[in-house]
């Protein structure tokens, strides 16, 4: 039963494109981290943006 299931999974072609896309965006994110962008994001996200919510 288990071996049949494994054979069926092996017959299905594994798509490589999603892994490539995820890798590319992962690299992009790491570049962002190396230039210290998360600290800027944190700084923005911990302040109330009044104009953003229609009160500024």
């Amino acid at each position: 039963m288990m071996s049949t299931k494994k054979n069926n999974m092996a017959k299905q072609k594994i798509r490589k494109a999603p892994f490539l896309i995820i890798f590319i965006f992962l690299v992009l994110g790491i570049i962002g981290i190396t230039v210290n962008e998360p600290s800027r994001v944190l700084e923005q996200a911990t302040q109330i943006c009044l104009s953003c919510i229609g009160i500024g």
Binding site: I22, F25, L28, G29, I31, G32, I33, E37, R40, V41
Partner: peptide, 12 residues
């Protein structure tokens, strides 16, 4: 700060 961290996260 070109938005790489944010776009990278969204893309992943």
């Amino acid at each position: 700060f070109f938005g790489f961290y944010v776009v990278g996260t969204m893309g992943v």
